[in-house]
Design a binder for these strands. Structure first.
Length: 271
DNA sequence: AAATATACCTGACTGC
DNA sequence: TGCAGTCAGGTATATT
């Protein structure tokens, strides 16, 4: 489901729900066998902890507590939602975080590609340590990007989706940012000029920011923790628009598979 | 070493 | 209606 904008929208929803900094009274693992199994000692590590904040690093949510951090990656289909006291658990509800005052947050994930872990210090966590800069950070500059890709033989689309180069860009926003920057997704990364890198950094930031403003993209069943779907999908310029007219030049949008992922582009606007 | 392919899962949708 | 095939917002691991 989620690229950076969707995860950020979820983070903001959770932050609001947990703003009074409740204590965790109980953690229930209904089904811990995610793609990476949830470690059982997470329950005892977090029991009684008080929520201080909900942060985000890349596509990971970080529940910051008095006892350490709960890391949550939503994979393709993960969601967090509030469960009222009279509601029953549904199929694919794998974890319950029970808080004082009848508040219960449920992790739901049909495909179980999501990830949950406890970390005392997330900055040294194996999953986070290899990640590149946040797209809105000054470290993600045109010069940095050019340096990173100048000898890369993969496509530029694969490069910007590489979480070691920049975090948060997934399959949808990669196609969108490349369209906005006028670069074909299948172009070899080392052929992308410094000037194009400048454009690309700008457009990645712009499209991610716009998507956050719109509450994320709700294709299939994405919902923020406040149960509201986003509407950025209505603003897609190229994604899932194969055969439709380019919004800018009216040429027909094409679809190409790059590294196994569908990629959409305009043959006239992108070089 | 780096680039690409495959695997991990379930559900929704297509075409027969 | 059912059944087989394909595809999906991600990422770790295997294979070239």
């Amino acid at each position: 489901m989620p690229e950076l904008p969707e995860v950020e929208v979820v983070r903001r929803g959770l932050e609001k729900i947990l703003q009074h900094q409740p204590h965790l009274t109980e953690i229930q693992l209904h089904r811990p066998d995610l793609r990476d199994p949830i470690p059982v000692d997470l329950v005892k590590s977090l029991k009684g902890a008080q929520i201080l904040a909900v942060d985000r690093r890349a596509k990971y949510l970080l529940f910051h507590t008095t006892k350490g951090f709960l890391l949550s990656h939503l994979g393709m289909t993960g969601t967090w939602r509030c469960l009222s006291s009279d509601e029953k658990l549904r199929k694919h509800d794998h974890v319950s975080l029970c808080f004082e005052g009848n508040l219960q947050l449920v992790y739901h994930d049909p495909r179980r590609f999501g990830y949950l872990d406890f970390a005392k210090d997330p900055t040294t966590h194996a999953k986070l340590i290899k990640l590149g800069p946040e797209p809105f950070d000054d470290a993600f500059s045109a010069e940095y990007l050019r340096q990173k890709i100048k000898s890369k033989k993969s496509t530029i689309k694969s490069a910007i989706m590489d979480q070691a180069i920049v975090v948060g860009v997934g399959n949808i926003y990669a196609s969108e940012a490349l369209f906005l920057a006028g670069i074909r997704p299948q172009k070899k990364a080392y052929l992308v000029s410094s000037l194009s890198c400048r454009m690309l950094v700008e457009k990645i930031r712009w499209v991610l920011a716009k998507a956050i403003e719109s509450g994320g993209s709700s294709i299939s069943d994405f919902k923020g923790a406040d149960a509201q779907g986003g509407y950025f999908q209505t603003q897609f310029q190229v994604y899932d628009r194969k055969g439709l007219k380019c919004v800018r030049c009216r040429a027909l949008i094409r679809e190409t598979r790059i590294a196994g992922r569908s990629s959409f582009w305009c043959p006239r606007c992108q070089k």
